[in-house]
Write a protein that binds this DNA or RNA. Structure first.
Lengths: 126, 126
DNA sequence: ATTAGTGTCATAATACACTATGACAGCAAA
DNA sequence: TTTGCTGTCATAGTGTATTATGACACTAAT
């Protein structure tokens, strides 16, 4: 995995796992990679992955079974959706809006963005 | 100034100055705060501000006059606009799109976003 | 010439993310 | 019971952002 320089690695790992859950690639009750295994795959230290997992455990999106490993919590996806939606609209969107205003980006520059939003309008199921 | 934990302070200072320039609050040729002064205002070390300024000098958006201070470069605004526009569309927009897809945010959730974009459509000058 | 304001350089100390490694306990299967 | 997975804890080392200070050269104004 390729990491960004500007953000802590253990948070990027967390974000990656969370994204897997939101995309449905990992479902509730399913086991996630062991600390050692993921550390190997991502060419990262065990302690760093451990930190990500501890962090996610406190958030309640994964749970530990002693001697076995970590598993996706039952309401992980629902909680992640709620929390991230709130974070995005409240914290990230304002800076995005400011960016768009300052850079004077118009409908043509952001055609893909508008298309993406509109395609979500036609999906009312859940 | 309030700093985010996740990003380097000297980069946040750079972003702040760049934003002032893009907004036209500081114009070409104008003097920006001295290293010591800005450090005081932002409650940050001199060396940290110095790092921001050195960084911006390498980028060509500010210039130094020995013994006097730093000044906004002539093409600073134009260069910043070009560079940031490119960075936004190429690096940041993709992750925003992915976020919108995963969180299934629709036109109603992002009403303000769409309005902001459309208001830029009616500004064809510059 | 003196004073005060500029940037600049050097040094040391602090804080923290990340790494490297070893050791130990719990669990499951052979 | 042994083997091989799990997580967990402890310890030490590295790199780097940030802080804290001091000192020096340049410029402008008195």
């Amino acid at each position: 995995m390729e990491f960004s320089e500007s953000k802590n690695i253990f948070l990027q790992i967390r974000d990656w796992i969370a994204d897997q859950i939101l995309q449905g690639k990992i479902v509730a009750g399913e086991k996630i990679p062991s600390v050692r295994e993921l550390a190997m795959d991502m060419e990262v230290n065990r302690n760093t992955v451990m930190r990500s997992y501890s962090f996610m455990e406190e958030e309640g999106i994964i749970e530990n079974k002693r001697g076995i490993g970590f598993f996706v919590a039952v309401d992980a996806k629902r909680n992640l959706l709620k929390k991230q939606k709130q974070t995005f609209l409240k914290d990230e969107l304002p800076s995005i809006l400011h960016r768009i205003e300052v850079l004077k980006l118009n409908s043509e520059d952001l055609k893909i963005l508008i298309q993406t939003i509109q395609s979500n309008d036609h999906e009312n199921q859940q």
